[in-house]
Design a protein around this nucleic acid. Structure first.
Lengths: 150, 150
DNA sequence: GCAAAAAGTTAGCTTCGGCTAATAATCATC
DNA sequence: GATGATTATTAGCCGAAGCTAACTTTTTGC
Protein backbone atom coordinates (compact mmCIF):
# COMPACT_ATOMS: atom_id res chain seq x y z
CA UNK A 1 0.00 0.00 0.00
CA UNK A 2 1.43 3.39 -1.01
CA UNK A 3 1.19 6.54 1.09
CA UNK A 4 -1.41 7.84 -1.32
CA UNK A 5 -3.57 4.78 -0.85
CA UNK A 6 -3.23 5.22 2.85
CA UNK A 7 -4.33 8.82 2.68
CA UNK A 8 -7.25 8.00 0.43
CA UNK A 9 -8.53 5.20 2.59
CA UNK A 10 -8.10 7.33 5.68
CA UNK A 11 -10.10 10.08 4.10
CA UNK A 12 -12.79 7.69 2.97
CA UNK A 13 -12.92 6.28 6.47
CA UNK A 14 -13.13 9.76 7.95
CA UNK A 15 -16.02 10.65 5.68
CA UNK A 16 -17.87 7.47 6.61
CA UNK A 17 -17.39 8.14 10.32
CA UNK A 18 -18.56 11.70 9.95
CA UNK A 19 -21.66 10.73 8.01
CA UNK A 20 -22.51 8.15 10.62
CA UNK A 21 -22.10 10.73 13.36
CA UNK A 22 -24.41 13.02 11.43
CA UNK A 23 -27.01 10.26 11.29
CA UNK A 24 -26.89 9.97 15.08
CA UNK A 25 -27.08 13.72 15.49
CA UNK A 26 -30.09 13.74 13.19
CA UNK A 27 -31.81 11.05 15.20
CA UNK A 28 -31.19 13.01 18.41
CA UNK A 29 -32.69 16.09 16.79
CA UNK A 30 -35.78 14.13 15.72
CA UNK A 31 -36.10 12.79 19.23
CA UNK A 32 -36.23 16.30 20.65
CA UNK A 33 -39.34 17.18 18.66
CA UNK A 34 -41.14 13.86 19.10
CA UNK A 35 -43.06 14.77 22.20
CA UNK A 36 -44.13 18.14 20.84
CA UNK A 37 -45.33 16.49 17.63
CA UNK A 38 -47.31 13.86 19.50
CA UNK A 39 -49.00 16.46 21.65
CA UNK A 40 -49.85 18.78 18.79
CA UNK A 41 -51.23 15.92 16.73
CA UNK A 42 -53.35 14.74 19.64
CA UNK A 43 -54.59 18.24 20.44
CA UNK A 44 -55.71 18.70 16.85
CA UNK A 45 -57.56 15.41 17.05
CA UNK A 46 -59.30 16.31 20.30
CA UNK A 47 -60.37 19.68 18.96
CA UNK A 48 -61.75 17.99 15.89
CA UNK A 49 -63.63 15.41 17.96
CA UNK A 50 -64.79 17.49 20.91
CA UNK A 51 -64.35 21.09 19.88
CA UNK A 52 -61.69 21.56 22.54
CA UNK A 53 -58.61 19.90 23.98
CA UNK A 54 -58.69 19.52 27.75
CA UNK A 55 -55.51 18.62 29.65
CA UNK A 56 -57.28 15.72 31.33
CA UNK A 57 -58.08 14.15 27.96
CA UNK A 58 -54.57 14.72 26.71
CA UNK A 59 -53.28 13.01 29.84
CA UNK A 60 -55.42 9.89 29.53
CA UNK A 61 -54.75 9.55 25.83
CA UNK A 62 -51.02 10.04 26.20
CA UNK A 63 -50.85 7.78 29.23
CA UNK A 64 -49.18 10.37 31.47
CA UNK A 65 -50.24 12.32 34.56
CA UNK A 66 -51.85 15.75 34.56
CA UNK A 67 -48.79 17.61 35.87
CA UNK A 68 -46.68 16.16 33.07
CA UNK A 69 -49.21 17.48 30.59
CA UNK A 70 -49.18 20.90 32.25
CA UNK A 71 -45.41 21.15 32.02
CA UNK A 72 -45.32 20.00 28.42
CA UNK A 73 -48.07 22.44 27.47
CA UNK A 74 -45.91 25.15 28.99
CA UNK A 75 -43.13 24.24 26.61
CA UNK A 76 -45.49 24.09 23.63
CA UNK A 77 -46.83 27.55 24.51
CA UNK A 78 -43.30 28.87 24.91
CA UNK A 79 -42.47 27.49 21.47
CA UNK A 80 -45.48 29.13 19.90
CA UNK A 81 -47.39 25.98 19.05
CA UNK A 82 -50.40 26.49 21.33
CA UNK A 83 -52.25 29.18 23.22
CA UNK A 84 -53.96 28.70 26.53
CA UNK A 85 -55.50 30.53 29.44
CA UNK A 86 -55.30 29.32 33.01
CA UNK A 87 -57.80 26.59 33.82
CA UNK A 88 -59.02 26.62 30.26
CA UNK A 89 -58.67 24.34 27.26
CA UNK A 90 -55.79 24.47 24.84
CA UNK A 91 -55.81 25.71 21.26
CA UNK A 92 -53.35 25.50 18.43
CA UNK A 93 -51.64 28.49 16.87
CA UNK A 94 -51.28 28.77 13.13
CA UNK A 95 -47.85 27.15 13.48
CA UNK A 96 -49.25 24.44 15.70
CA UNK A 97 -51.99 23.63 13.22
CA UNK A 98 -49.46 23.42 10.41
CA UNK A 99 -47.29 21.04 12.42
CA UNK A 100 -50.30 18.94 13.40
CA UNK A 101 -51.37 18.64 9.80
CA UNK A 102 -47.92 17.57 8.73
CA UNK A 103 -47.72 15.01 11.53
CA UNK A 104 -51.11 13.58 10.75
CA UNK A 105 -50.13 13.28 7.13
CA UNK A 106 -46.92 11.42 8.00
CA UNK A 107 -48.72 9.25 10.52
CA UNK A 108 -51.33 8.21 8.01
CA UNK A 109 -48.82 7.35 5.33
CA UNK A 110 -46.76 5.24 7.70
CA UNK A 111 -49.86 3.54 9.07
CA UNK A 112 -51.30 2.78 5.65
CA UNK A 113 -47.95 1.47 4.57
CA UNK A 114 -47.67 -0.93 7.49
CA UNK A 115 -51.21 -2.12 6.96
CA UNK A 116 -50.59 -2.67 3.28
CA UNK A 117 -47.62 -4.83 4.22
CA UNK A 118 -50.11 -7.05 6.02
CA UNK A 119 -49.54 -5.99 9.62
CA UNK A 120 -52.43 -6.25 12.06
CA UNK A 121 -54.06 -2.89 12.90
CA UNK A 122 -53.08 -2.92 16.57
CA UNK A 123 -49.37 -3.46 15.94
CA UNK A 124 -49.46 -1.14 12.94
CA UNK A 125 -50.78 1.68 15.08
CA UNK A 126 -48.20 1.06 17.76
CA UNK A 127 -45.27 0.89 15.35
CA UNK A 128 -46.47 3.86 13.31
CA UNK A 129 -46.44 5.93 16.48
CA UNK A 130 -42.75 5.20 16.94
CA UNK A 131 -41.66 5.21 13.31
CA UNK A 132 -43.38 8.36 12.06
CA UNK A 133 -40.85 10.68 13.65
CA UNK A 134 -37.92 8.99 11.95
CA UNK A 135 -38.86 8.78 8.28
CA UNK A 136 -37.31 11.21 5.83
CA UNK A 137 -39.26 12.82 3.04
CA UNK A 138 -37.80 10.34 0.61
CA UNK A 139 -38.78 7.31 2.62
CA UNK A 140 -42.23 8.74 3.14
CA UNK A 141 -42.66 9.15 -0.60
CA UNK A 142 -41.65 5.54 -1.15
CA UNK A 143 -44.07 4.37 1.54
CA UNK A 144 -46.91 6.33 -0.03
CA UNK A 145 -46.16 5.01 -3.50
CA UNK A 146 -46.04 1.45 -2.22
CA UNK A 147 -49.37 1.65 -0.40
CA UNK A 148 -51.03 3.14 -3.43
CA UNK A 149 -49.61 0.43 -5.66
CA UNK A 150 -50.99 -2.45 -3.66
CA UNK B 1 -79.75 5.80 20.36
CA UNK B 2 -80.64 3.55 23.31
CA UNK B 3 -78.86 3.52 26.63
CA UNK B 4 -77.32 0.23 25.68
CA UNK B 5 -75.91 1.64 22.50
CA UNK B 6 -74.53 4.49 24.51
CA UNK B 7 -72.85 2.18 26.96
CA UNK B 8 -71.40 0.06 24.20
CA UNK B 9 -69.99 2.95 22.27
CA UNK B 10 -68.57 4.44 25.44
CA UNK B 11 -66.86 1.20 26.25
CA UNK B 12 -65.52 0.85 22.74
CA UNK B 13 -64.26 4.40 22.94
CA UNK B 14 -62.63 3.72 26.29
CA UNK B 15 -60.84 0.68 24.92
CA UNK B 16 -59.58 2.64 21.92
CA UNK B 17 -58.26 5.42 24.15
CA UNK B 18 -56.54 2.95 26.41
CA UNK B 19 -54.90 1.11 23.56
CA UNK B 20 -53.66 4.39 22.15
CA UNK B 21 -52.24 5.36 25.52
CA UNK B 22 -50.49 2.01 25.64
CA UNK B 23 -48.94 2.70 22.25
CA UNK B 24 -47.50 5.96 23.59
CA UNK B 25 -46.26 4.26 26.71
CA UNK B 26 -44.59 1.62 24.56
CA UNK B 27 -42.89 4.27 22.47
CA UNK B 28 -41.59 5.99 25.60
CA UNK B 29 -40.22 2.69 26.83
CA UNK B 30 -38.44 2.09 23.53
CA UNK B 31 -37.00 5.58 23.73
CA UNK B 32 -35.45 4.84 27.09
CA UNK B 33 -33.30 2.03 25.68
CA UNK B 34 -32.39 3.68 22.41
CA UNK B 35 -29.17 5.28 23.57
CA UNK B 36 -27.96 2.13 25.30
CA UNK B 37 -28.67 0.11 22.18
CA UNK B 38 -26.83 2.53 19.95
CA UNK B 39 -23.78 2.51 22.20
CA UNK B 40 -23.68 -1.25 22.58
CA UNK B 41 -24.05 -1.75 18.85
CA UNK B 42 -21.26 0.72 18.15
CA UNK B 43 -18.98 -0.77 20.79
CA UNK B 44 -19.38 -4.22 19.24
CA UNK B 45 -18.50 -2.76 15.88
CA UNK B 46 -15.40 -1.00 17.17
CA UNK B 47 -14.20 -4.12 18.93
CA UNK B 48 -14.70 -6.07 15.75
CA UNK B 49 -12.83 -3.49 13.67
CA UNK B 50 -10.06 -2.46 16.06
CA UNK B 51 -9.98 -5.09 18.76
CA UNK B 52 -11.07 -2.51 21.33
CA UNK B 53 -13.57 0.29 21.86
CA UNK B 54 -12.00 3.53 23.02
CA UNK B 55 -14.19 6.31 24.39
CA UNK B 56 -12.67 8.78 21.96
CA UNK B 57 -13.79 6.68 19.00
CA UNK B 58 -17.24 6.22 20.45
CA UNK B 59 -17.46 9.98 20.87
CA UNK B 60 -16.51 10.85 17.29
CA UNK B 61 -18.74 8.17 15.82
CA UNK B 62 -21.72 9.12 17.97
CA UNK B 63 -21.14 12.82 17.40
CA UNK B 64 -21.02 13.69 21.11
CA UNK B 65 -18.32 14.92 23.47
CA UNK B 66 -16.06 12.74 25.58
CA UNK B 67 -17.72 13.57 28.92
CA UNK B 68 -21.09 12.55 27.53
CA UNK B 69 -19.60 9.22 26.52
CA UNK B 70 -18.06 8.78 29.97
CA UNK B 71 -21.38 9.35 31.67
CA UNK B 72 -23.27 7.05 29.36
CA UNK B 73 -20.66 4.32 29.79
CA UNK B 74 -21.21 4.66 33.51
CA UNK B 75 -24.88 3.85 33.00
CA UNK B 76 -24.09 0.95 30.69
CA UNK B 77 -21.68 -0.48 33.27
CA UNK B 78 -24.25 -0.01 36.01
CA UNK B 79 -26.77 -1.86 33.85
CA UNK B 80 -24.40 -4.76 33.30
CA UNK B 81 -23.88 -4.24 29.58
CA UNK B 82 -20.18 -3.38 29.62
CA UNK B 83 -17.09 -3.71 31.78
CA UNK B 84 -14.34 -1.15 31.99
CA UNK B 85 -11.31 -0.11 33.98
CA UNK B 86 -10.27 3.48 34.52
CA UNK B 87 -8.44 5.02 31.56
CA UNK B 88 -8.88 1.80 29.62
CA UNK B 89 -11.02 0.61 26.74
CA UNK B 90 -14.51 -0.75 27.11
CA UNK B 91 -15.69 -4.33 26.67
CA UNK B 92 -19.07 -5.93 26.41
CA UNK B 93 -20.47 -8.35 28.95
CA UNK B 94 -22.30 -11.46 27.82
CA UNK B 95 -25.53 -9.51 28.12
CA UNK B 96 -24.06 -6.61 26.20
CA UNK B 97 -22.92 -8.88 23.41
CA UNK B 98 -26.37 -10.43 23.17
CA UNK B 99 -28.02 -7.02 22.97
CA UNK B 100 -25.50 -5.86 20.37
CA UNK B 101 -26.17 -8.87 18.23
CA UNK B 102 -29.90 -8.36 18.41
CA UNK B 103 -29.54 -4.68 17.52
CA UNK B 104 -27.25 -5.39 14.62
CA UNK B 105 -29.72 -7.94 13.35
CA UNK B 106 -32.60 -5.48 13.54
CA UNK B 107 -30.53 -2.72 12.01
CA UNK B 108 -29.57 -4.85 9.06
CA UNK B 109 -33.10 -5.98 8.35
CA UNK B 110 -34.41 -2.44 8.43
CA UNK B 111 -31.55 -1.18 6.30
CA UNK B 112 -31.93 -3.93 3.72
CA UNK B 113 -35.64 -3.30 3.63
CA UNK B 114 -35.24 0.41 2.96
CA UNK B 115 -32.66 -0.28 0.27
CA UNK B 116 -34.90 -2.83 -1.36
CA UNK B 117 -37.63 -0.19 -1.51
CA UNK B 118 -35.24 1.82 -3.66
CA UNK B 119 -33.95 4.33 -1.10
CA UNK B 120 -30.46 5.75 -1.57
CA UNK B 121 -27.86 4.28 0.83
CA UNK B 122 -27.15 7.52 2.68
CA UNK B 123 -30.79 8.19 3.54
CA UNK B 124 -31.42 4.52 4.20
CA UNK B 125 -28.66 4.45 6.80
CA UNK B 126 -29.93 7.60 8.46
CA UNK B 127 -33.55 6.44 8.59
CA UNK B 128 -32.64 2.93 9.69
CA UNK B 129 -30.81 4.43 12.66
CA UNK B 130 -34.01 6.08 13.79
CA UNK B 131 -36.49 3.39 12.84
CA UNK B 132 -34.73 0.30 14.16
CA UNK B 133 -35.71 1.01 17.75
CA UNK B 134 -39.39 1.20 16.92
CA UNK B 135 -40.18 -1.89 14.90
CA UNK B 136 -41.97 -4.77 16.55
CA UNK B 137 -41.05 -8.38 15.91
CA UNK B 138 -43.97 -8.70 13.56
CA UNK B 139 -43.02 -5.72 11.48
CA UNK B 140 -39.43 -6.89 11.40
CA UNK B 141 -40.54 -10.25 10.06
CA UNK B 142 -42.55 -8.56 7.33
CA UNK B 143 -39.58 -6.35 6.43
CA UNK B 144 -37.29 -9.35 6.20
CA UNK B 145 -39.74 -11.29 4.06
CA UNK B 146 -40.19 -8.36 1.74
CA UNK B 147 -36.46 -7.80 1.20
CA UNK B 148 -35.93 -11.47 0.50
CA UNK B 149 -38.80 -11.53 -1.96
CA UNK B 150 -37.48 -8.69 -4.08
C1' DG C 1 13.29 9.21 30.05
C1' DC C 2 10.97 13.52 29.70
C1' DA C 3 7.90 16.83 27.73
C1' DA C 4 4.02 17.56 24.94
C1' DA C 5 -0.07 15.71 23.03
C1' DA C 6 -3.88 12.82 23.37
C1' DA C 7 -7.21 10.51 25.90
C1' DG C 8 -9.99 9.93 29.92
C1' DT C 9 -12.30 11.62 34.00
C1' DT C 10 -14.67 14.71 37.23
C1' DA C 11 -17.41 18.55 38.54
C1' DG C 12 -21.05 21.18 37.61
C1' DC C 13 -24.44 23.22 34.67
C1' DT C 14 -28.76 22.78 31.42
C1' DT C 15 -33.14 20.96 29.46
C1' DC C 16 -36.50 17.53 28.96
C1' DG C 17 -39.96 14.64 30.52
C1' DG C 18 -41.51 11.76 33.89
C1' DC C 19 -43.52 11.50 38.90
C1' DT C 20 -46.16 12.70 43.75
C1' DA C 21 -48.21 15.75 46.95
C1' DA C 22 -50.53 19.75 47.79
C1' DT C 23 -53.29 23.58 46.37
C1' DA C 24 -56.53 26.21 43.56
C1' DA C 25 -60.18 26.81 40.35
C1' DT C 26 -64.20 25.28 37.91
C1' DC C 27 -68.34 22.58 37.33
C1' DA C 28 -72.35 20.20 38.55
C1' DT C 29 -75.94 19.01 41.52
C1' DC C 30 -79.12 19.58 44.87
C1' DG D 1 -75.85 29.35 45.80
C1' DA D 2 -73.16 26.03 48.86
C1' DT D 3 -70.72 21.95 48.49
C1' DG D 4 -68.49 17.92 46.69
C1' DA D 5 -66.30 16.14 42.61
C1' DT D 6 -63.57 17.02 38.83
C1' DT D 7 -60.01 19.39 36.65
C1' DA D 8 -55.89 22.31 36.51
C1' DT D 9 -51.78 24.16 38.47
C1' DT D 10 -47.71 24.61 41.36
C1' DA D 11 -43.82 23.01 43.86
C1' DG D 12 -40.39 19.96 44.11
C1' DC D 13 -38.28 15.59 43.24
C1' DC D 14 -35.71 12.29 39.89
C1' DG D 15 -32.94 10.35 35.93
C1' DA D 16 -31.28 10.71 31.18
C1' DA D 17 -28.42 12.89 28.09
C1' DG D 18 -26.27 16.72 26.46
C1' DC D 19 -22.56 20.53 27.31
C1' DT D 20 -17.94 23.27 29.08
C1' DA D 21 -14.06 23.80 32.03
C1' DA D 22 -10.60 21.86 34.67
C1' DC D 23 -7.88 18.10 35.95
C1' DT D 24 -5.39 13.43 35.66
C1' DT D 25 -3.50 9.72 33.28
C1' DT D 26 -1.55 7.58 29.42
C1' DT D 27 0.82 7.58 25.12
C1' DT D 28 4.06 9.30 21.94
C1' DG D 29 8.12 11.38 19.94
C1' DC D 30 12.36 13.27 20.46
Amino acid sequence: MTDDDNLDSNEAEARAVESRAEAFIGVREARRSEVAEDYVELIAELIHENGEARPVDIATRMGVTAPTVAKTLGRLARDGLITRAKYRSVFLTEEGRALAKECRHRHEIVLRFLLSLGLDPETAERDAEGIEHHVSERTLALFAAFSKRS
